[in-house]
């Protein structure tokens, strides 16, 4: 006896399901994130002085002047796939960190990037992963993050030759993440201030 198949699928349903799978996968590729989800996450930060994520997309007029004036090209502009966050600026500190030149803050026309002083910038907080950091693991004596930190001895100091972050002074500029030689990075910027409640 010759049975048609275990799963009784005719051609139409087969093509339909094929198309559906294709469309779904393509749309997931093209639109990797939901419409209203913030693109800010670990090592993906807003430029200095940014208002909380809650009102960031409302305030920013997507003029792109911050990206244009950034001399290090740290700031990139998100495209249409990021939903309501499209057109807003983002810094990926793993690629190019923020050197805190404060130029973008000075020219933002909407106050989305608030005029703050260099040491008042709070883009996030550097967090050391003690299970990744070779110094903390005792494998090697690396202190790259300490060396590159613009607020050395304040934001990062050495405690028995091991780096320690003080969140009171850390600006979250990401120079340490950028410099960290370990892969995956042993020091990462958590954007804790971006999700504070807006007052």
């Amino acid at each position: 006896m010759f049975r048609r198949s275990v799963l009784d699928v005719n051609r139409r349903t087969f093509i339909k399901s094929l198309l559906a799978t294709l469309l779904l996968s393509v749309s997931q590729k093209a639109f990797p994130r939901p419409f209203f989800t913030s693109p800010v996450k670990v090592n993906h930060l807003r430029p200095p002085g940014a208002v909380p994520e809650e009102i960031f997309p409302a305030k920013c007029i997507r003029c792109g002047r911050c990206a244009e004036i950034c001399p290090y090209r740290s700031i990139k502009i998100l495209d249409v796939r990021y939903g309501v966050f499209a057109g807003t600026p983002l810094i990926e500190v793993e690629k190019i960190p923020c050197y805190l030149c404060m130029k973008c803050v000075e020219i933002c026309p909407t106050g989305t990037l608030r005029p703050v002083a260099q040491d008042e910038v709070r883009m996030g907080v550097a967090v050391i992963n003690h299970r990744q950091c070779v110094t903390w693991l005792g494998i090697a004596l690396c202190r790259t993050c300490y060396n590159v930190c613009p607020f050395k001895e304040k934001a990062i100091h050495l405690d028995q030759l091991r780096p320690v972050v003080d969140e009171k002074y850390c600006t979250g500029c990401g120079l340490c993440t950028h410099g960290c030689p370990v892969n995956p990075k042993a020091i990462n910027i958590e954007p804790v201030y971006s999700f504070e409640k807006h007052v």
Binding site: A58, I61, R62, C63, G64, I69, P71, I107, P109
Partner: peptide, 28 residues
């Protein structure tokens, strides 16, 4: 790196003189 003028017709900065498009500003 000649950044005396930045932006386009959403917001244009010429030195310290800023223009903001009225609709963009109003919506913000």
């Amino acid at each position: 790196h000649f950044d005396f003028v930045q932006g386009w017709y959403q917001s244009l900065g010429v030195g310290n003189l800023w223009f903001v498009s009225p609709l963009e500003g109003l919506e913000s």
